[in-house]
Design a protein around this nucleic acid. Structure first.
Lengths: 337, 337
DNA sequence: GTGAAAGCGCTAACAT
DNA sequence: ATGTTAGCGCTTTCAC
């Protein structure tokens, strides 16, 4: 069933049918009604492929997700998908490994799929202007930004929290509660992305509080995976590392750490406090409830798509939005002063 | 950059370039090399849209996810996406609400996107042959099956656990541990899908164990959402319902229930045991560790795509695979006999 | 082995 | 207001 068949069935030309299909005004009411009727009764659905071809563009937005093991992305993916669909576009999602280059993969998808835009979830924060030249459609970085300042103002879009500052805030919160031996649970300290940024916030907070930086206090999990965090924390505890609080760069990792603490006989928060950043729903159900800086995930997904749409429709330059976290006080942090 | 440009650059015809692009044998080695060279150096990527149009089919597999709030789907979505990409196809994902009709949405997508196949995640279990006629491409039901037997053998494909039986198994496990007052935490009892099937398994188990069915023992959450499960359980506890164990139809819901129990002053498992079905990674990190029947999620996603590929490539009829769960004993169930 | 040409289903001038 | 027609970029006969 093609547009031709509909045209024949209605006794009109294909252009008339096409006009009805695209809600053009220049069709007589009578013809419009007839065409609509036939379309309805024949169950006709236009071939998007043909439409895309002639318009030399599709209705697809690519979502490139880097690092699959973080449940933090789940809610964002949902919000992104919802928004994209609500805007009349289609989401094509592709996951890539932590070692893959999201820009290259995005560029591939862009051309193969004739994408109209791309949302990157969880990428590096230090793109160079040169490597971005392969991208010819608007894109927006969701949940991370160019926080190393390697890109000129206005040349890219992002929606994220201020990772370094929020980490700083979390750590000083522990300091205010009297903690002086504060450990950091990180994925890596050199990923040029979220983990490194939050680690830097941790370091700055320690410095500002007049606390020394010690390798003993850094728990390196290697990834954002809950199991890795659990094992790394367990190992650190086995070495009898001395700390009264843990700042985890992610909720997910904090939950792994809490199990390790528990199994090592250290109660949270009596023997060790835990604070994290992310605000997973799940964290509210743990015992003790995790104290965490909540990212507005639904909003972040939504805003990302809004910015992308503005760019696609030529409304304004790319812009970077920084959203604030909200401290959700659970019961995993104890005052000790 | 189109195929024409490449042809011109190489001094050959578009057909020759097309042949090279599609790995046809009938091209001279010399031409092939030249074309490949130019393609490489010019960064040319074929327009998939045009290819799809002429082949009257795309490389897209649709993933229709129904009910967004269940973290159980996360891992499956990942496995499905990985497998689809590995097979050289593209995943187009669409989420739909619990009230939407997945078959209708699938049919829409099928035609708009020229899908080659569809994976349904979380649908009803009682399709009629008639309503499936709108689907003209192979599809596979992932994580649920036609367990009401409304479809003729060999007319659909699925990968799932035997929901009713696994629920039966979970409940009898509680019985064996001495529990006689066993509550069921369900989403609904009439959704013609997973919740109802597992509830039926619960009922059968009670009957076989000679235990009466009581409304007092049914906690109706209305959805699979953790918050709904938490609230429903809290409400049931406020009514001082009398039970020593809870069978939750999903891990996620069990975690909500455990918080409600804790807040009501009931310790798990000392005062109340909890068992569930799903096997979320997260459940291993809760305290007490949740005892649950684990579904092989990664395998389920992978197998679904394998079956779909077989159907797309005309290898064999649709088939239904039932996978077994594995009991992961946590610490949430206590023997009381 | 290679090229010319006819479409795939649709949109968008352009003509009427 | 409506119809005619030329492509969009590619694959695939069908000649040569």
């Amino acid at each position: 069933m093609t547009i031709k068949d509909i045209a024949r069935l209605c006794g009109v030309s294909v252009s008339t049918v096409s006009r009805v299909l695209n809600d053009r005004p220049d069709v007589s009411e009578e013809n419009r009604r007839r065409v609509l009727e036939v379309i309805e009764s024949s169950n006709y659905i236009p071939n998007n492929t043909a439409r895309d071809l002639v318009k030399t563009k599709s209705d697809a937005i690519g979502l490139v997700v880097r690092g699959v093991s973080n449940p933090f992305y789940t809610d964002i993916i949902r919000a992104v998908e919802d928004s994209i669909t609500a805007e009349g576009f289609t989401m094509v999602m592709q996951q890539i490994g932590t070692c893959d280059d999201e820009i290259k993969r995005g560029a591939m998808m862009e051309r193969e799929k004739r994408l109209r835009g791309i949302v990157f979830l969880g990428g590096r924060s230090d793109y160079t202007p040169e490597e971005l030249t392969v991208l010819n459609v608007p894109f927006v970085c969701c949940s991370y930004a160019n926080q190393y300042g390697t890109l000129p103002e206005g040349s890219y879009a992002s929606v994220s929290i201020a990772d370094e500052e929020e980490a700083y805030r979390a750590v000083t919160e522990l300091y205010r509660c009297g903690h002086r031996r504060i450990a950091a649970l990180v994925a890596r300290t050199d990923d040029r992305a979220i983990s490194q940024l939050r680690y830097q916030g941790y370091l700055r907070a320690l410095a500002d509080c007049g606390l020394p930086t010690e390798e003993e206090l850094v728990i390196r999990a290697g990834s954002f995976d809950i199991g890795d965090a659990y094992r790394a924390t367990a190992e650190k505890l086995r070495q009898e590392a001395d700390f009264t609080a843990v700042f985890s760069i992610a909720d997910n990792m904090a939950l792994g750490a809490m199990r390790a603490l528990r199994e090592a006989g250290r109660r949270v928060p009596e023997d060790c406090s835990v604070i994290a950043i992310d605000g997973l729903t799940m964290s509210e159900y743990f015992h003790p409830m995790l104290t965490t800086l909540c990212q507005p995930m639904e909003e972040m997904g939504r805003r990302s798509v809004e910015i992308l749409m503005d760019m696609i429709h030529g409304r304004g330059r790319p812009r970077c939005e920084t959203v604030r976290t909200v401290l959700r006080r659970g019961a995993s942090v104890r005052r000790i002063n």
